[in-house]
Design a protein around this nucleic acid. Structure first.
Lengths: 205, 205
DNA sequence: GTGCACCCGTGACATCCGTCATGCGGACGT
DNA sequence: ACGTCCGCATGACGGATGTCACGGGTGCAC
């Protein structure tokens, strides 16, 4: 590879999308996609092995989320810049991505040119965030759910009945009801299904 | 454009992915991406306007699904070939895509090379389908839900209570309960949330 | 024209769910 | 040492949900 080229890693589980993004970035003369992975838990090792300058991470991936992978990169190779590119522009995702030390947060709705642009800007030490999303994330405040409330709500997400949830979390059925009741109130929902939907949208799960 | 070039349309709502796929296909010498749209309801007009040879359609798009757009293409310009490329390899999607007259069905998990390959094969008159998915779609059988059962289940999907669903569909609350009960039995679920999940997985919604 | 499947409705019943009050123990901050 | 928050639990209550039996209407196929 030529000297001065930016060494980029792409992490994205959908092969077609990943390779397409690689093709796109390769059209930029100064960028070199030297590694591609399809699993979150393969990111950190690849970053170290290839001496990556910028890692572009999807959030939803098998093995580990892009957000957790970002935190891992921060531990093993702090000088690597991280760009999170995701389908869902949920404020909760943005907040958690920033807490994990991400340098940029993009939604895939955006034009493709923004990706290359974001890579160059994070290399200059800038942070890149959609202003609309930033405002939404700030106005939303922190996650009001306690740890256990989150557990129970997450366990209820697939349509399990109380008895199942209780068994899975080693709780009594009444306790499950109580936690769910709390979660429903805090999400301003009318039942567990709505609570799950709201919590997901806000990134509280 | 050079004579003999294949005129391709890309329909995909995520700008970054759409433009990346365009970049990828442009690397193939014989393909020419002459049109890009981000909404399902813009597909048919673009196909006619640009005299498209092959339309590559995502399923989940604003305005109209790729499956419905495929049916529209069949009406307005039958000689155009249609490739459905989707994130979710749900058997129900495959079945409905085929019923709408699609020539190929790809999941975005697949390697990028398959897309160009599929485009060339449908131009030769072949059908392109993942054998695993085809088997799953066949073994699953047809959608057992009646029209109204689907409506009610879909209306319940966001966590609405019975009264809401009844009002939205102009039904009595008891009728909503009955339809939901049927849907729950047919999906072998224990409550509406599980029924929604199962129906989604099987592509019955 | 006689089934049959679908649509829509009612009423009754058992169960599940959501809420509230209340209790106890542990962790944490002041 | 005290208050506060969290985790976990129980019991009781009303309302929502799921099931069943039953009815009537429509349209379609044999």
């Amino acid at each position: 590879m030529t000297d001065g080229q930016v060494r980029v890693l792409l992490a994205e589980d959908q092969g077609m999308v990943r390779e397409a993004l690689a093709a796109l970035l390769s059209l930029e003369g100064d960028l070199d996609v030297v590694a591609q992975v399809s699993r979150g838990d393969a990111v950190a090792a690849a970053v170290v092995e290839h001496g990556i300058d910028v890692a572009v991470l999807d959030i939803e991936m098998p093995g580990m989320t892009g957000i957790d992978a970002c935190a891992e990169i921060r531990r093993v190779r702090p000088q690597t810049k991280v760009v999170i590119a995701t389908t869902f522009g949920r404020p909760g995702y943005l907040r958690r991505a920033m807490e994990s030390g991400a340098d940029a947060f993009l939604v895939k709705d955006a034009p493709a040119a923004e990706l290359a642009e974001a890579i160059r800007r994070v290399l200059r030490g800038e942070k890149v965030i959609d202003p609309t999303l930033a405002a939404a994330a700030l106005s939303e405040g922190a996650n009001p759910l306690t740890g256990r409330e989150r557990d129970v709500l997450a366990a209820a997400a697939d349509g399990s009945v109380n008895a199942d949830i209780a068994a899975r979390l080693h709780l009594s059925e009444g306790t499950v009801r109580n936690y769910l009741s709390m979660a429903i109130q805090k999400t301003a929902a009318r039942n567990r299904a709505e609570a799950v939907r709201v919590a997901r949208e806000k990134g509280w799960l």
